[in-house]
């Protein structure tokens, strides 16, 4: 191996600072959430306690956090499943170069770059004017999909751009139907990327704020609840909540990454099992 240039050490330092910049604040509130009962929002620590976590679990102290968490979790799962299914279908459609594909693609890109508050405002207006009930499972769900679907679609583009068509041709040559080819050849090959789409679907929904602001109705999702707290809670209880939801996010991300890793290992050991189910 050739020796590292000086720039390597300089850049390593820069990268380390960047990572500190990314994670430092989160770690800080992680520490501060263990403040003693008299402690405030900044250092110094006045003792160490679980006081603020305890307070979170007492329903009356702060709003309906657990209800909000349950709603956000359910909505995250709904958005995740829908995003995976629709993204795969759309990904397959775009391979066929159907008329109107260009327009639909630009619409999806527009969905990414149009300010979230416009989606929120527009969906809210439509639901009110049509006399429909604004609810997180309807208007909130649809608004969030306009944010998660483009990401899912972009991942599918990346996947299918690299997809080796000869696998499908081989399956077809051996008499597999279109559905069998999809079910036993294409899906198993792209499965790890589908986990990626699922991760985007769940986490982007779970953390979404702007698109749910005017579309969630009378029941808040967790980010809305947390934002509400920022205006009237001035104790470390908000750090405790932040620490818990961040840990939850890390747990979800970890689970997905682990699943991808296990899938890769199994595949390396057994070779692809695509087609065995036929």
């Amino acid at each position: 191996m050739e020796p590292r240039p000086t720039s390597f050490y300089f850049l390593t330092g820069f990268f380390a600072l960047f990572v500190l910049f990314l994670y430092g604040p989160t770690i800080t509130i992680g520490i501060l959430s263990f403040q003693g009962p008299e402690g405030g929002l900044t250092f110094p620590m006045r003792g160490v306690s679980l006081n603020w976590f305890r307070e979170l679990f007492q329903e009356q102290a702060v709003g309906d956090i657990w209800g909000a968490f349950r709603r956000s979790f359910a909505l995250g799962l709904m958005v995740m499943v829908t995003t995976v299914v629709i993204s795969v279908m759309a990904g397959l459609a775009f391979r066929k170069r159907f008329p109107g594909a260009g327009l639909l693609f630009y619409l999806a890109i527009a969905s990414l770059v149009i300010p979230s508050i416009l989606v929120s405002l527009g969906v809210g207006l439509i639901f009110t004017q049509l006399g429909l009930k604004i609810h997180w499972t309807t208007s909130g769900f649809g608004s969030q999909l306009t944010w998660t679907l483009p990401f899912g679609l972009l991942i599918m583009f990346a996947v299918f751009n690299r997809f080796d068509k000869s696998y499908e041709e081989a399956a077809r040559d051996q008499g597999a139907t279109a559905w069998q080819t999809l079910r036993h050849v294409v899906i198993p090959i792209i499965a790890p990327s589908l986990l990626g789409v699922a991760l985007f679907g769940f986490t982007l929904s779970y953390d979404e704020f702007a698109r749910t602001l005017l579309t969630a109705g009378s029941y808040n999702t967790l980010p809305l609840e947390i934002f509400g707290m920022t205006t009237n809670v001035t104790t470390p209880v908000i750090y405790a909540l932040g620490t818990l939801t961040t840990l939850f996010s890390f747990l979800v991300i970890g689970a997905f990454l682990l699943a991808v890793w296990v899938m890769g290992k199994r595949r390396a050991r057994h070779g692809s099992d695509a087609g065995k189910g036929v």
Binding site: P25, T26, T28, I29, T42, F200, I226, I238, G242
Partner: peptide, 13 residues
């Protein structure tokens, strides 16, 4: 993949 709101709050201290 974590919450933007929490990441903003975490600058306070």
């Amino acid at each position: 993949w974590t919450s933007n709101i929490i990441r903003m709050i975490s600058w306070i201290p």
